[in-house]
């Protein structure tokens, strides 16, 4: 059963009671009475499989903390199993906080995978990993690739299977920030972007709905073939440079969520990933140039 199969009138009630939501290998039980959460899930998770499931990996909620703040400039807080890892945020950030909270659940607990801080997409059977420092334009590029026929495997957390080294899909809405929201809105009419949360600690934040193909193929792992470190730079013509693998290794390891925790296993998995991949850096200013580069990469 897909979330879009639930009648709109019943969805709010379902979420208030607890909605089972499958995203990649994880099952969340999402509970909230916030209208913003219901709207976000309805628009951005329409193609996702929903429960009831017998078991859930994470029980999460977005709820209003007790006290006067329930009524005056109301806030919401994310909780997993009753534990709130973040400070409360304004109520109109409810959906964004749910997304951040779900990311936190995975990043802090799913240590049966090596988790790299990177986007990852697939085309022609080749997964391309996009690590990126903040401001590198990774999410904008990821969104443009998603809207250009690439399968989204993840926009934030690259899951590497410890048994076979393949990428485990974790397609979720793509987080867009600030100027990239309008860039992607005007990039493609197919872009379905949720409500914008203004003045968050990351600025304005909105999410792009993943394409149905990425959601429906969530069980289909992909072989890593390329690692590309993107860097958006104003006015830059597209340039590409080979990246040595030792430096790429250090970057991946230092930006992984659980490299230190997995120790020698993480070393081997990172090494094996680099063994199977080409490795390069690109600078770009125009999305079309970058898209042409990626098409050529997996041709």
């Amino acid at each position: 059963m897909r979330l879009s199969d639930i009648p709109a009138a019943a969805l709010t009630e379902r979420i208030a009671a607890g909605l089972g939501l499958q995203t990649g290998p994880f099952r969340f039980l999402v509970q909230s009475s916030e209208a913003g959460v219901a709207r976000g899930l309805s628009q951005l998770y329409a193609d996702f499989e929903v429960g009831p499931f017998d078991l859930h990996d994470f029980h999460v909620s977005i709820r209003r903390p007790a006290g006067l703040r329930r009524w005056i400039r109301p806030q919401v807080e994310f909780a997993m199993d009753g534990f709130s890892p973040f400070i409360p945020l304004p109520a109109d950030h409810a959906f964004a906080q749910l997304e951040w909270g779900m990311n936190w659940c995975i990043a802090a607990h799913a240590h049966h995978y090596l988790m790299l801080h990177a986007a990852v997409l697939e085309k022609n059977g080749q997964a391309v990993i996009l690590p990126g420092d903040p401001g590198a334009g990774k999410s904008t590029l990821t969104a443009a690739l998603v809207l250009s026929g690439w399968r989204l495997l993840s926009d934030e957390i690259t899951l590497i299977d410890r048994d076979d080294g393949q990428i485990v899909p974790l397609a979720r809405p793509v987080s867009l920030k600030n100027a990239s929201i309008d860039i992607i809105r005007s990039f493609s009419q197919a872009a379905s972007i949720g409500e914008t949360a203004l003045d968050t600690h990351k600025g304005s934040v909105a999410h792009l709905r993943p394409m149905p193909d990425s959601v429906l193929r969530m069980d289909e792992k992909a072989q890593p073939r390329h690692i590309v470190f993107p860097r958006w730079k104003s006015q830059a013509l597209l340039t590409r440079h080979p990246q040595d693998k030792a430096s790429a290794f250090i970057h991946l390891a230092s930006h992984a969520f659980n490299y230190n925790l997995l120790g020698p296993l993480a070393f081997r998995l990172t090494k094996n990933t680099l063994d199977t991949c080409t490795c390069q850096r690109i600078w770009y200013s125009q999305l079309d140039d970058a898209l042409a580069f990626f098409s050529e990469l997996v041709a």
């Binding site: 040595d244 693998k245 030792a246 430096s247 290794f249 250090i250 390891a253 490299y259 230190n260 120790g263 020698p264 070393f267 090494k271 680099l274 063994d275």
Partner: peptide, 18 residues
């Protein structure tokens, strides 16, 4: 060390450092 490259990556298990 990858073929054709000139730098090594080293995992030091006792210190859990790379």
């Amino acid at each position: 060390c990858w073929p054709g490259e000139h730098e090594y990556v080293l995992y030091h298990g006792a210190a859990n450092q790379t």
